[in-house]
């Protein structure tokens, strides 16, 4: 019987979008059955257009920067966009997959994507904001799958 991987994706920044989609697509390639439950800011990763994901150096002291930058500089308008642009360039230069590609790989390999009903309501998202092929469910829906999983991670 296939092994099972259950993930919770709770973050919606460009950097933190990677771990759930990398692990899910790889596990699917290893013949795992995979389910990702998207909650809070993670819901952003299910939107139709995810080309505007951002990464911020502010409050993120471990983020490698070309020059050391104090917090008050990072607050300036445009710094977040600049950091995001630099990160995207780096991603392309190093042959790292785009989030769009990894999400597509997940969908193609049958990874189950579940949007958290409560946070969909909380943030006033609409079903039409999200891509096709996802489900909307609650914590009990997650446990229906996670309860029988071999690996379960909160990201």
């Amino acid at each position: 019987m296939a092994k099972k991987l259950a993930l919770i994706a709770s973050k919606g920044t460009l950097d933190w979008a990677y771990p759930p989609f990398i692990l899910a697509s790889t596990a699917a390639a290893l013949d795992y059955e995979v389910c990702i439950f998207f909650t809070f800011y993670g819901l952003t990763l299910l939107k139709k257009d995810i080309s505007d994901l951002k990464v911020s150096p502010l409050g993120n002291p471990a983020m490698p920067m070309p020059v050391p930058m104090p917090n008050f500089v990072q607050m300036l308008p445009g710094m977040e966009s600049m950091a995001t642009m630099m990160m995207k360039q780096q991603i392309a230069d190093k042959g790292v997959a785009s989030i769009e590609d990894l999400r597509r790989a997940c969908l193609e390999s049958g990874v189950k994507l579940i949007a958290c009903q409560m946070t969909v309501d909380l943030f006033d998202f609409k079903r039409s904001d999200f891509i096709e092929g996802i489900e909307i469910g609650g914590a009990a829906t997650f446990f229906e799958f996670a309860g029988n999983s071999d690996v379960s991670l909160f990201i």
């Binding site: 990398i22 790889t26 390639a29 042959g95 997959a97 590609d101 990894l102 390999s109």
Partner: peptide, 14 residues
């Protein structure tokens, strides 16, 4: 070639 983790594995599976 020139692809980073996990793309080589995904291409292999495909």
């Amino acid at each position: 070639k020139n692809l980073n983790c996990p793309l080589p594995i995904l291409r292999c599976k495909k």
